[in-house]
Simulated scan of single mutants.
Amino acid sequence: MKAAVVILCILNSLAGNLAMAQPYYPESDDEVIETLPPRGKSWFEIKLLRIKVKSSPAALQPVLDLASRYIELGRAESDPRYFGYAEAVLAPWLKSGQVHPEVLTLRATLHQNRHEFTSALAYLDKALALQPRLGQAWLTRALILEVQGNYAAALKSCLPLLKLASALVSQVCIASTQSLTGQIDSAYQQLMLALPAAQSEPLQNRQWAMVALAEIAERKGDSKAAEQHYRQALKLDRNGYLLAAYADFLLDRARYREVTELLRNETRADTLLLRLTLAEQALQLPTAQAHIVALAARFAASRMRGDTVHQGDEARFLLHLAHAPEQALKLAQANWGIQREPRDARIILEAADALDCPEQIQPTLNFLAQAKLQDVRLQPLVDRLSRSSS
């Protein structure tokens, strides 16, 4: 309990210090504030794309290629600075008189990454009004609506992909949504059938399908299949989302050493540092306390920036590391107002269970029941909270 008080004091102190801190303003747009470390092939690829954009400033395709690659790197490395680079690349085209649907779609993707879903959907609507057959816009729209828990609308946005995208992309979109609405077994089987015929698909698409299969299998309670899919995905490439999902899988099975091995060199991303710290705490490693303090500082800084992307993770930090269930529940409920994935439901249920206050989360319980969401990780919590409220 004493440690929890210390952490909360740190949070409050950091908030005050950050409020008084003076921002640094570059003297010109050309001033370099920080240079990201070279990342091998990706770094040279970016360099070539930047040369193409600079040599052909009136050409749209090089701009789209460069902005898309920055977004891919931002997601893979959980580094938001790449998203800022993508914004800068798109900015001149957004200010021009002619608005291109592809540019609007990429801007929507950037808003999606910041969890600004309302504005993202508005940009996508504009893009689709200009180009109704733009597959990427339909896919991004479906993904956002699924995260928001609007499953009927998400599925409706997946359907155009049957004609506008590859068989694998359309099947992942459909299966992912159906797996959250009481059709988990059929969704899993359909996606399993689609994967073997997709060997010519880009690596990114195949990995997306494998991660979707892993998450569906995990919700079904098939740990063996889930682990197999996670490991297959990791063989293709490592990215922040996959590492976090697999780390959660390992944490749920008390395989803490494996989590520390997986994430030892992944401390730059808050979401991965959180999972590493949870494993370190379980193992009573001396590094846990320093990482707890670091996370407290990072979350405090995010709040000062008005950044709500990591509210779910911060709620998890407050519940399991700061031992502050009241604050955890409050933040988890705020997060639930923005996104409604199974992991978002889980932190609400865990916080309410710790406080024994099912009445405060009745809307969440109602949503899960109406959606017919199947998840073996959530069901014991739902059953316990439902009994407490009756």
Rank of each mutant, 00 (worst) to 15 (best):
275 R>E: 02
265 N>A: 15
283 L>H: 00
246 Y>E: 08
46 I>E: 13
165 A>Y: 04
375 D>L: 00
306 G>L: 10
106 L>V: 03
340 R>Y: 07
199 Q>W: 10
176 S>A: 06
151 Y>I: 04
153 A>Y: 02
303 R>Y: 14
126 K>D: 09
368 L>D: 01
249 F>P: 02
367 F>I: 03
129 A>W: 05
243 L>W: 05
32 V>P: 13
229 H>K: 09
354 A>L: 06
91 A>T: 05
140 T>Q: 00
81 R>G: 14
181 T>E: 05
318 L>T: 14
168 L>Y: 08
174 I>Y: 11
263 L>T: 07
179 S>G: 11
371 A>V: 01
219 R>H: 04
356 D>H: 15
164 L>Y: 05
128 L>P: 06
241 Y>Q: 07
46 I>H: 12
285 L>S: 07
340 R>C: 01
329 L>G: 02
283 L>M: 08
247 A>E: 11
177 T>A: 13
373 L>P: 02
102 E>S: 12
319 L>D: 13
75 R>M: 07
218 E>F: 09
79 D>G: 15
298 R>C: 10
267 T>Y: 09
23 P>R: 00
14 L>W: 05
175 A>D: 12
359 E>M: 08
104 L>D: 06
101 P>C: 03
98 Q>T: 11
363 P>H: 00
102 E>A: 12
212 A>V: 01
164 L>N: 14
30 D>M: 15
126 K>F: 02
114 R>S: 06
188 Y>V: 12
33 I>F: 15
261 E>P: 06
172 V>G: 08
68 S>N: 10
298 R>W: 14
200 S>E: 04
323 H>G: 06
158 C>Y: 04
115 H>Q: 03
34 E>R: 15
298 R>I: 15
142 A>E: 06
18 L>N: 04
134 L>F: 03
123 Y>C: 02
130 L>S: 14
358 P>W: 04
110 L>M: 10
194 A>Q: 11
74 G>L: 08
282 A>T: 08
179 S>H: 09
257 R>M: 13
147 V>S: 13
191 L>C: 14
180 L>Q: 06
273 L>G: 03
172 V>R: 13
96 S>L: 11
211 V>C: 03
195 L>F: 03
287 T>E: 14
114 R>D: 03
379 Q>M: 04
27 E>A: 15
366 N>H: 08
73 L>D: 09
43 W>F: 13
119 S>M: 00
188 Y>R: 04
104 L>M: 05
3 A>H: 02
279 A>F: 06
42 S>N: 12
366 N>W: 01
178 Q>Y: 04
35 T>G: 15
150 N>H: 10
31 E>R: 12
329 L>N: 01
163 K>M: 02
114 R>N: 00
81 R>W: 12
151 Y>W: 07
216 I>K: 02
301 A>E: 11
270 D>Y: 04
321 L>K: 08
328 A>L: 10
35 T>Q: 12
360 Q>A: 01
143 L>P: 00
173 C>E: 01
131 Q>S: 09
12 N>K: 05
83 F>P: 15
209 A>G: 07
58 A>Y: 05
8 L>S: 07
201 E>P: 01
334 A>Q: 08
50 R>Q: 07
285 L>V: 08
311 Q>Y: 11
132 P>A: 07
25 Y>S: 15
309 V>P: 04
289 Q>T: 12
161 L>K: 10
78 S>T: 09
276 L>W: 06
83 F>E: 15
54 K>S: 07
272 L>S: 14
345 A>Q: 05
336 W>S: 11
40 G>A: 15
